[in-house]
Every structure is written in C-alpha cells, then in structure tokens.
Amino acid sequence: MNTKFAIPCAIVIASAGLLGSPAAAAPPSTISGAIFTSDVSGVPVNLNIYEAKEDVYLNGGPGINAPDGAAGLPDGTYSFQVTDPSGKVLLSTDAVVCRQFTVVGGVIEDVVDVGGCEHATGADGEDGGATVQLFPYNNTPNNGGVYKVWVSPTNLLDCSAPGNKQCFVPRYSKVDNYKVRSDIIVEIDVRFWKNGVAMDGYAAEWTDTNGASNIKFSEWNPSVLAFHEAHFEATEEGRHSIKVSDQPGCDITAVELPDGSYGKLRGNTSTVSFDVAPAGPGADVTYFVDVSCR
C-alpha cells in the first residue's frame, strides 16, 4: 500500500466537517466519470447480487466493457460510504477518514494510509488499478437487500450543504446500488437503436432519487445479463432520471420512456424522468429506456 497521504485518524474523527472544508477554487457543478461495484478481482458480479457484505469491492472507472477513451474519476482523493438506498441511514461503521482512496489516471491507485484503519484492497486485473473493500458496514433496512455506495471528492464533503447525506453532497457524488443475498431484480436498462440494431458502447447517465448520479455503457455481456443494455441495477423506489446525448455514431432522434411516452429533445440531449414502483415479493421488474439514433 502506498503511504502518500498520512492523516491522523483523530483529526477527522473529531469533526467530519473538516474533511469537507471548502476548496480554494469554486467547486465543479458535477463530478465526471463513473464507479461500479465488483468482487475483489474487479470482475462485475451478475446483477450486482453478492453472497456476503464482505464480497463487495469498489471499482473506479467506467467498467470493463466501456469504449476506449471513456472517462474514469478525475485524479484526486475520494471518500466513500455505504447507506440504505435512500441515503438516510448510514451503514458504514468506521470513521470517514478510514474510507479514503486516491485516483491516478482514471483508476483507483490505493487507499489512503491513515495509520491502520484503512480498508482492504485487491488488484484489478482489467485496468491495473486497485479495488477497495466496502466492509465494514451494517445490514441494510431495505426489504430487498439493497445497499447504495457513495463516492465523493474528499475536499467536497460538506456537512452543512442542503440535502447532504452524512456530509456527502449528491451533486458531487457518484453512486451505485447493489444487493446482498437477494435475487429481487428491479433495474433500469437503456438501449441504443440504429436501423433496428442495438448498439454497444454508448453512455447513459442515471440520476437517483437523491440527485446523485452514475454513468453506465450499453454492452453485450451475458455473464452479467447485459444484452446490449446500459444496466442500472437494484434501483430503489421513487423518481429516477436518465440523460442521454449525441455520441459518435448516434445522433438521437427519439427517447422512449418505460410507459411508452417520449421524452423531449433539447439540442443534442434528452433527460427523461419516471417513477420506479415498490418491488413486490419475488417480482422482477425492468424499466426500459429506448434511444433511437440516426
């Protein structure tokens, strides 16, 4: 493990707000890049369903099947937390100072050395970076076994910001949902179509019920049940949004919502919003968003 950022635990344990001290420069409007969860090896797990809480690792970057040039997180130091899907219940049990890592070249370089409470890591065989174990954290109160991991630049944590979740500000956070010991499937799948053919490697941005976001890419990967789709798994009850924009090889002509209606195009971008209903016992529900390209 690298030891570049030694910070005494007591400094931040005494005041979580210290991690969120305002940066000297004006903060960005949002954070670019993406995150996802995987096992220790960096391999995505089928439908984000894990056998045990200890099996879940954080992975930086846009994912194994993202197109060349897709952006990971910007370089810097980040903090993470695990909550229930609403973000209201903090499940991480250690101090936030223990939950930090660095990103270099768009991939996770290492955890921050804080004197022994930092999290375990693994080696990502796909991008050469590190994976970071999310454990320890408590069981989720969610009946569907859903957890939400948050990642935010450490210097943008702000315990006084409106709508913050344990000092994590949604607009500055990347999130991903996952499940432990639950096979209930509630997901949003975005498909990109051109001349009747589903296309891979196209980005869709999801904004969750808290206003936090993440980016996934359409892919053909049957091992994780991705069939030319950008997968957003374990989505919670409430209002969600999907944003798509023109990309090379796809000039958007229409965006169809799950209910069959169509979203508005504003220039080369469309943002559609819809409600995810409560998951019934044993119910598998997929909300499709279909993007037509020319």
Rank of each mutant, 00 (worst) to 15 (best):
A34L: 09
A34N: 09
F36P: 01
F36Q: 14
F36A: 14
T37E: 12
T37D: 14
T37I: 15
T37K: 08
V40Y: 07
S41M: 05
S41N: 14
S41D: 11
G42I: 01
P44K: 12
V45W: 02
V45Y: 07
V45R: 04
L47I: 11
N48C: 12
I49M: 13
I49Q: 15
Y50Q: 06
E51D: 15
E51M: 11
A52N: 14
K53T: 09
K53S: 07
K53F: 04
E54G: 06
V56N: 04
V56I: 00
Y57L: 06
Y57A: 03
L58T: 09
N59Y: 08
G60L: 03
G60W: 07
G60E: 04
G61M: 00
G61Y: 09
P62L: 04
P62R: 09
P62W: 12
P62C: 09
G63Y: 07
G63K: 00
G63T: 07
I64G: 05
I64P: 09
A70C: 11
A70D: 10
A71I: 07
L73G: 13
L73E: 14
D75A: 14
G76C: 07
S79I: 00
S79W: 06
F80I: 09
Q81P: 03
Q81C: 10
V82G: 05
V82D: 04
D84M: 01
S86T: 08
G87C: 01
K88N: 15
V89D: 10
L90Q: 03
T93A: 08
T93R: 06
T93P: 06
D94R: 02
D94T: 15
V97M: 01
Q100V: 04
T102I: 05
G105Y: 10
I108D: 05
E109C: 01
E109K: 12
D110A: 06
V111T: 15
V112I: 06
V114H: 11
G116Y: 11
C117H: 07
E118Y: 00
E118P: 08
E118F: 05
H119Q: 14
H119N: 14
G122C: 08
D124I: 04
G125F: 09
G125S: 12
E126R: 11
D127T: 13
D127E: 13
G128F: 04
G128C: 10
G128R: 02
Q133I: 01
L134E: 02
L134H: 03
L134A: 00
F135K: 00
Y137F: 15
Y137L: 03
Y137W: 05
N139G: 02
N139P: 02
T140D: 00
T140C: 08
P141R: 04
P141I: 02
N142L: 03
G144W: 05
G145C: 03
G145A: 02
Y147A: 11
V149R: 05
V151F: 11
S152I: 03
S152A: 15
P153F: 00
T154E: 15
